[in-house]
Amino acid sequence: MSPAGRLTPDLRRWIIAQAEAGHPPEVMLKSMTDAGWTEAAALDALESTLRLKAAEIDSRQKPSPGSRSGA
């Protein structure tokens, strides 16, 4: 895991992989706090990463109005 408190690309990937594998947020939170993250910073990292991933998925699924080829 990346240095505590710094949300690196590797950590983003780890969070997404854990979420895709079905691990609940509290399990990821425990792993991060065990690695030295404060709970607040770990929650921030989880929330930010998963929110951006959701926005990314939403971007791909939502065709743009007037789009002929999709976005």
């Binding site: 690309p9 983003r12 990937r13 951006l52 926005a55 990314e56 971007s59 939502k62 743009s64 976005a71």
Partner: peptide, 13 residues
């Protein structure tokens, strides 16, 4: 779409 290659993020907000 805006993309952040170092972060592996691509989205259309």
């Amino acid at each position: 779409a805006i993309h952040f290659p170092e972060l592996g993020i691509e989205l259309r907000p």
